[in-house]
Design a protein around this nucleic acid. Structure first.
Length: 456
RNA sequence: GUGGAUGUAGCUCAGCUGGUUAGAGCGCUAGAUUGUGGUUCUAGAAGUCGCCGGUUCGAACCCGGUCUUUCACCCCA
């Protein structure tokens, strides 16, 4: 067997202890907040049956699914000729029956339907797990990344939308990331599609206007035309979408007038009005703005659509979600409405890295290292270290009687703030020589003093 | 899936129009300092120049392919 250069698959990453400290800061913060609002954690398997996954994310999504080759002789019954003639896609459906999860929402829907008899509705759940997409990696985009989902299913109340905005607000404030929450409503988009006389083309319309901010109206117009929309409809669309300068209430007033003939459009406007009424009595620090160009890729949103953008870093959205009225319907449980958002932990990680917005102690691990001077000293220090740990102090005894220099360097490399030295002299005196690794000061103190010094 | 860039020591990068033993800084190891890290000084180890093939007397350098990383498009956290 030849030695191969160690490597990891495209689009995946290792995380060092230092990076894990930072990532855990994100996960811990989110988990704590989710729990505070009454959400319960679940996990689902990394792999799902392909039948659960396929067709849920559109044609594009199917292509990006990682498929898992069946074990055993998966080619049994195939002749070489068959392999040459059969379509690649078809072939994979014969030899793969499992795939890696693509997001957390669809597995959650599956979970809800499968466990509907055990679940008390409304069901508030959160889920922090990796997902996989066979996408081509680029900036802020990985093949393996973590999503942190919070959803409520089984409740139509707009209170849920409000609560999710509160969660977003609190989360990014705690993480010191300045953001803006963009919000839209699928019903308004439907209303607009009705208004311009193209009610069937809502998907084409939303995909095109989603790019407005990025490429400008000219290009959007072109794309709409290519997608076969009538010129008159495009012009009417323009007059509606380009109300960017208005504030939220003005936008709603405007839409209410324009969409008077569309029942769904008016419902959407009303929903947003209610939402803003609630938001007003809560002190939300993050700006929330209505963005009619916000459409998002997934087709299953039916009401509110959210997206959160970092203000100080160019990285796309770091959190997104919306309401989906009938997600569980495809698994045989109709009329269960859900609303949820997903925090993109890896992008938040990238943002925090660029802003250096971690709390200063986020990388500190061990508080005190005991230098190992030999066998007698080991026996003397071991119980001391144990006592410190019982007090909740992170302590370690260097494994092995290595050169002092080596042991000190170890403490230095690990950024351990204190080194305790107990040799013959200290054992006789019953003291500990404690060195502060930041200031370089050193003093002989008693063990009880050490405990006091390290307890916070 | 389409198009562009990239790959040289553990890391960040030099390396002239192709020319003989491929360099630096940081890091690492050892010593100065056998109970003191981080600073300083001295010495040392370390590279199939991503991989495969081609052109050439000669390739890190030119050409083709392939893989990696990265940027944009599509799409998306």
């Amino acid at each position: 067997m030849s030695i191969t250069k160690p490597s990891i698959p495209k689009g995946t990453r290792d995380f060092s202890p230092d990076e894990m400290n930072k990532r855990n800061f994100i996960f811990d913060t989110l988990r704590e907040i989710f729990k505070k609002y009454g959400y319960q954690q679940i996990e689902t398997p990394a792999m799902e049956n392909l039948s659960t996954l396929l067709g849920k994310y559109g044609e594009e999504g199917d292509k990006l699914l990682f498929r898992i080759l069946n074990s055993g002789n998966f080619l049994e019954g195939f002749e070489p000729d068959d392999l040459a003639s059969v379509e690649l896609n078809q072939l994979s459906s014969y030899i793969c029956e499992k795939g890696l999860r693509y997001d957390l929402t669809v597995p959650f829907a599956r979970y809800v339907v499968q466990n509907r008899n055990e679940i008390t509705f409304p069901f508030k759940r959160f889920q922090i797990q990796p997902v996989w997409r066979a996408d081509r990696p680029q900036k802020g985009r990985y093949r393996e990344f973590f999503q942190c989902d919070v959803d409520v299913v089984g409740s139509n109340s707009l209170l849920n939308e409000v609560e999710l905005i509160q969660i977003i607000d609190e989360a990014f404030n705690r993480m010191n990331v300045r953001t803006v929450i963009k919000i839209n409503n699928r019903k308004i988009l439907s209303g607009i599609a009705e208004y311009i006389g193209e009610p069937e083309r809502i998907v084409d319309i939303t995909i095109a206007i989603d790019k407005l901010e990025k490429v400008g109206w000219e290009r959007v117009q072109e794309e709409l035309f290519q997608r076969g929309l009538a010129e008159g409809a495009i012009n009417e669309l323009k007059s509606i979408v380009q109300v960017l300068d208005l504030n939220n209430i003005e936008k709603l007033d405007f839409l209410e007038k324009v969409l008077f003939a569309s029942e769904s459009g008016l419902t959407g406007v009303k929903e947003l009005r209610t939402l803003f009424e609630y938001l007003e009595i809560l002190s939300i620090k993050t700006p929330v703005e209505i963005d009619l160009t916000l459409a998002r890729g997934l087709n299953y949103y039916t009401g509110a659509i959210f997206e959160v953008k970092a203000l100080d870093v160019e990285i796309g959205s770091i959190c997104g979600g919306g309401r989906y009225d009938n997600l569980t319907g495809i698994f045989g449980l109709p009329d269960v409405s859900g609303v949820g958002i997903s925090f993109g932990a890896d992008r938040i990680f990238d943002v925090l890295n660029q802003l250096e917005g971690y709390p200063p102690d986020a990388s500190q691990s061990t508080q005190v290292l005991f230098v190992n001077f030999g066998e007698k000293e080991e026996l003397y220090c071991l119980p001391l270290v144990q006592k410190l740990r019982e007090k909740g102090i992170k302590a370690e005894l260097f494994p092995g009687n290595q050169k002092m220099k080596k042991q000190m360097s170890y403490a230095d490399a690990k950024k351990i703030p204190f080194v305790a030295m107990v040799g013959e002299t200290e054992m006789t005196n019953g003291t500990i020589s404690l060195k502060n690794m930041v200031t370089g000061e050193q003093a002989a103190i008693l063990f009880d003093e050490l405990i006091l010094k390290l307890s916070v």
